[in-house]
Design a protein around this nucleic acid. Structure first.
Length: 462
RNA sequence: UCCCCUGUAGCUCAGCUGGCAGAGCAAGUGGCUGUUAACCACUGGGUCUGGUGUUCGAACCACCACGGGGGAGCCA
């Protein structure tokens, strides 16, 4: 059986084809019925044309009951279409109704639905234009990410999802337990984690970075691409409790090389979207966010701007009055600051480097000035921070000092410190939020609409 | 966690100062010789999110709960 994508690429030579898919719309005139089928293989539908008078009873009955959402198989010949709107169509001679969709109750109609409504039927929304396109782009972006790294000799490392380290320092964690919480609550006793599955408290990982650093110090260029869990009580269009993160880590590399990698990586992903998902992107450009393609094209052919945190703050201070939060050296860059820098100052992606050490994690390489670290955040217009990375602190004493300064116990990081004790070397890496990338590439506003089944605060349906 | 908005038909919404529950789309039926957001006509469709209160009378006012959205913080 050929996919609709494949069928639509053929010549209209009258050959017999069987199209299996789901009915998107049905249009009827007295003698002719038009059925548009989609099978998810591409954005476009294939139009099947039925002459009711020439159909046998079975097909006529199937056609009558084939409403929006029904699964059907149409048999006919592939011909060029006499009407505008499509070049090819299937002149159908038979229709089989595979799975009915009662039009009285099927929630999807042949009209536009709000994303809020579609979120409530997440199991059916992939059957819409928008969510089908999102899924295809998402797939392609994952493929492009692997291709990019594999072509450059990076090794894909599977870092653990469960961790017993409660101090990875990247946010609230979900606790994992096999203890019977109901029984413990009823018993009124305190929890004895020694009796838990791992013999101690354990959590879902908030980052694969610390683990992948170990493999970086053995295999050179490595990356992770896996699910990540954050139990933050954040309710925004850009946070999820469960999301996918890509984290490359490169050995013997300092910050400039890291920035170059991040820029090459993002450009490669954009190129793949523009070239490999042209049809889907055309839809996003037309219906979701106008000017999308042009802005992605512009990024692809631009050079990312670079700015130190200190210079960024100086830039912001010039326009102090236009901000709700007044910028000052040492402040965290607010959303409004990030947007100003990317959308007004550099009008494109911006890499901000060398943040005050107080704002960043313990593992970042300290600069000689004693007050900044070699961090780099990639900010993009509309989205804000899409990548957070750094050169890592590879000097044992400096790393222990940074831990203590942050109130962390070096003893809890024994194996991580071993990496600095034996054959340590400069290395750098970053984390890319995959869903944020998809938001950027598709123009979709809400991060819950670029992952199939979103998990967020008070939201774990489906 | 904080701030703001919102909840009325399957969907998107209107509903004035408190006085008989509305529209468009969808669905059903009929019509139409090729439609493509098809078109035309007709029909059915409601616990106005839930609770409590105020009132002769509540979709509308007050309070509480729940759901949805947006913004901020946290971050990827």
């Amino acid at each position: 059986m050929a996919s609709i994508r494949e069928i639509l690429s053929r010549d209209p030579d009258g050959a017999t084809v069987v199209v299996k898919g789901w009915v998107r719309t049905k249009r009827e005139t007295k003698g002719t019925v038009f059925l548009e089928l989609n099978d998810g293989s591409c954005f476009r539908n294939v139009q099947c044309v039925f002459d009711a008078a020439t159909l046998d009873a079975n097909s006529r009955n199937a056609l009558e009951r084939a409403g929006t959402g029904a699964a059907v198989a149409a048999t006919g010949s592939l011909v060029s279409s006499p009407a505008a709107g499509q070049t090819l169509e299937v002149k159908a001679s038979a229709l089989e109704l595979i799975g009915e969709a009662d039009p009285e109750t099927y929630p999807l109609q042949k009209k536009q639905h709000s994303f809020e409504f579609l979120r409530e039927i997440a199991h059916l929304r992939p059957r819409t234009n928008t969510f089908g396109a999102v899924a295809r782009v998402r797939n392609r972006m994952a493929f492009a990410a692997h291709s990019f790294f594999q072509e450059r000799g990076f090794q894909y490392i599977h870092t653990p999802i469960i961790t017993a380290s409660d101090a990875e320092g990247a946010g609230e964690m979900f606790q994992v337990t096999t203890l019977d919480l109901d029984a413990i609550a009823k018993g009124g006793k305190s929890v004895d984690y020694a009796r838990d599955f791992f013999g101690k408290r354990s959590y879902l990982s908030v980052s694969g970075q610390l683990n992948v650093e170990a493999y970086c110090m053995a295999l050179g260029s490595v990356y992770t691409f896996g699910p990540t869990f954050r139990a933050e009580n954040s309710n925004t269009t850009r946070h999820l409790a469960e999301f996918w993160m890509i984290e490359p880590e490169i050995a013997f590399a300092e910050l400039p090389e890291n920035m170059e990698l991040a820029e090459d990586f993002l450009k490669r992903l954009l190129s793949s979207a523009l070239d490999d998902c042209a049809e889907d992107l055309e839809f996003f450009d037309k219906r979701i966010q106008s000017g999308l393609r042009e802005s992605l094209e512009a990024v692809r052919s631009s050079k990312f701007a670079h700015m130190s945190y200190t210079d960024a703050v100086a830039e912001l201070e010039k326009r102090k009055d236009s901000f709700e939060f007044k910028p000052f050296w040492g402040c965290d860059l607010q959303t409004e600051h990030e947007r100003f820098l990317t959308e007004q100052v550099v009008k494109g992606p911006l890499i901000v480097t060398d943040y005050p050490k107080e704002l960043k994690a313990f593992y970042m390489r300290a600069n000689d000035d004693g007050r900044t670290v070699r961090a780099m955040d990639v900010l993009v217009p509309r989205i804000g921070e899409i990548i957070g990375g750094s050169e890592r602190e590879y000097r044992y004493d400096a790393l222990v000092g940074a831990m203590k300064a942050k109130g962390l116990d070096p003893a809890a990081y024994g194996w991580y410190l071993d990496l600095r004790r034996y054959g340590t070397a400069p290395h750098s890496g970053f984390g890319l939020g995959f869903e944020r990338l998809i938001r950027w590439v598709t123009g979709m506003e809400n991060i819950r609409d670029v992952i199939p089944f979103p998990r967020a605060v008070k939201q774990a349906e489906f």
